[in-house]
């Protein structure tokens, strides 16, 4: 049996994409921040907007996720949770032609 058989696919597995965080070594020694504060007004409003856009058939939750996953790594890690949602929703509304760049000026 070769090493590959013993160790399974990890020995030569590609580096996971940023959002695919299960087991990510860079956070191995990071304690979980027990921040219990509820979402701020901005977060709650982003959340409500996301639900409305889905309800109105303008965006699926999977499209939202795809948009979040497309955020470059440095920004993905730097933006807050609801800022990532906002970035994705804005990109999607433009990509799908719901809004134009002029609309957002």
């Amino acid at each position: 049996m070769s090493d590959a058989d013993i160790n399974g696919p990890t020995s030569e597995a590609p580096i996971p994409v940023t959002h695919d965080m299960g087991g990510a070594s860079r956070f191995r020694c990071t304690a979980v921040e027990r921040d219990e504060a509820p979402p701020d007004d901005f977060g709650k409003r982003v959340d409500a907007l996301r639900q409305l856009l889905a309800q109105k058939g303008l965006m699926t939750v999977d499209e939202l996720r795809r948009g979040i996953e497309a955020i470059p790594e440095d920004e993905y890690l730097a933006l807050t949770y609801y800022e990532r949602w906002l970035r994705s929703m804005t990109t999607l509304m433009l990509e799908k032609g719901v809004l134009s760049r002029e609309d957002l000026r």
Binding site: P9, A13, P14, P16, D20, G23, D62, R66, E69
Partner: peptide
């Protein structure tokens, strides 16, 4: 499947990397 579609282009998949090939 030990498949890595994210290496081939834009995609959205819900199979975590750590289970591929397991």
């Amino acid at each position: 499947l030990d498949d890595w579609p994210e290496r081939r282009g834009p995609c959205h998949i819900r199979t975590p990397h750590y289970l591929r090939g397991r």
